[in-house]
Computed example of a mutant assay.
Amino acid sequence: MKIIVVAPSLDPSKNVSGISSVTKFIISNNKEQEYIHFELGRKDNEEGGIFRIFSILKNMREWKNMLNKERDAIIHYNFPLSKASILRDPLFMGIALQQKRKMVVHIHGGVFLTHYKEASSFLKWILKKVFSWNVPFIVLGENEKNIIEQTLKAKRVFLLPNCVDLQDAESFERVYNWIEPLNIGYIGRIAVTKGMENLLQACRELKAKQIPFIVKLAGAEEVKDSFLPLFDSYLGHQFIYAGIVSGEKKNIFLKSLDVFVLPSYFEGLPMSLLECMSYGAVPVTTNVGSIGDVVEDCKNGLFIKMKDTDSIIEVLTNLNNDRKMLSRLGNEARATIFQNFNPHKYIQNLNAIYGMA
């Protein structure tokens, strides 16, 4: 059957997005369906604010044309619970529902999923309206499922954790770093809400303490020159910016890491987390969104406190000093992904949800 999948640009050079990564994974692995990508969302180099209004109006016209052209297609709508998406996406989904189209809404975290009480009355009203719809909602973890069912009273909620392609990781044999400087990495959007200020400050203090490490960042800055010049200035040769990576270049980047650091303020279930763990990098992350469904503190990763530089310093220092712990946690992280995140099973479950739309 035909599926219209709504997502940002799938070109990593134009948009660094977890939703785009999920969408690319689904399209490349679900050969039973014929996917039609409807691009919706700001590219990394596009202006925001009032300039987006004209772009959204254009998208609205294109959306109506798409629906009229593909009348029998099911809609797979990716919906992150950020302010911008909450204000925009219900309009597009509402048009589809007015036409009595079959639709699946795929929730991808966002600040107002885990911090619903902080939303304005207007945003809460929109969310309650959306989750009152009689459509299947896909969520990434048990915590999200509980929030949507209990707080927003959604009736048809299906748990489908993100999954990653394991073909390259399966053939990779990690040799753990026993004596060289610790390779600390992050891949994704380089932004304040990802905890970059705390990571930068932690790296500065680790350097001052003469703890050997190299920090590697890959991805695009949300605000140009907000962090990369600072990392370069403060860390010098201990900092590497790999740019926007995809394909084999991304695989090489992931293989080079000992530790994946994610001091994020909010998440769904990041594809980058699953990818890094599949290669045996130790996840050092805040316990937000559905991350706790995958990472168990001191078993296959280590939790840090949100907006807490000291906890990042403590955990990275311990990993540097105890390379046996680094090896043990990395092996457990890798095993977690291979035991619990099977691409074939993911696609089977997704197709079953399509059947209930």
Rank of each mutant, 00 (worst) to 15 (best):
H344R: 11
I27P: 01
A220E: 13
G41H: 06
S226I: 00
V164T: 04
M306E: 09
G185D: 04
A208N: 10
K31C: 02
L67V: 10
V294C: 06
V135S: 11
L91A: 15
L160F: 02
L228G: 01
K305E: 10
I187Q: 09
T23P: 06
L140D: 03
E296I: 13
N65G: 15
L316R: 00
R52T: 15
F137D: 05
N15T: 08
G185I: 06
M356Y: 11
S82M: 05
L160E: 00
V105T: 05
I179S: 14
V22N: 04
Q99F: 13
D44N: 15
I50F: 15
V157E: 09
G110D: 01
G188K: 11
E180P: 02
F338Q: 11
P12N: 08
K255A: 03
F239E: 14
G48P: 12
W178R: 06
K24W: 05
C276Y: 06
L67H: 09
K307S: 07
Q210A: 12
I190A: 14
P270M: 10
R42Y: 05
I86G: 14
I353Q: 08
R42I: 13
A119H: 11
F266V: 04
L199P: 08
V16A: 02
I187A: 09
V192H: 13
N351P: 11
W178A: 08
L152H: 03
V164C: 06
N183M: 15
V223P: 02
V157A: 03
G289V: 01
L182W: 02
K207W: 11
Q167M: 09
L302G: 00
C276I: 01
L40N: 05
I184M: 05
S132P: 12
K209E: 00
G219F: 11
I3Q: 00
N300V: 03
T286Y: 04
I179R: 15
L81T: 09
I179M: 10
P270C: 06
G280C: 01
P212M: 07
V223L: 01
L257G: 03
V22L: 09
E47G: 12
Y77K: 03
I3W: 00
D322G: 08
R88S: 13
G48H: 07
Y116K: 08
S120N: 09
S256D: 14
F38H: 12
K345L: 13
D165L: 04
L81H: 13
F51W: 14
E180S: 14
N320Y: 08
M103Q: 11
G236A: 12
P8Q: 05
L159S: 08
P8Y: 04
P263S: 02
E170Q: 12
F158Y: 13
I252C: 07
Y116R: 10
T23S: 02
D258A: 04
I19Q: 07
C203E: 11
K69A: 10
S20Y: 06
P8R: 12
V139W: 01
P343C: 03
M60G: 14
F303A: 01
G236T: 12
K14G: 07
S264D: 05
K155N: 08
P90Q: 12
N300A: 09
A218D: 02
V192T: 05
S256T: 07
P181I: 10
K83F: 13
V295P: 04
P161I: 08
V245R: 14
S132D: 09
F260G: 04
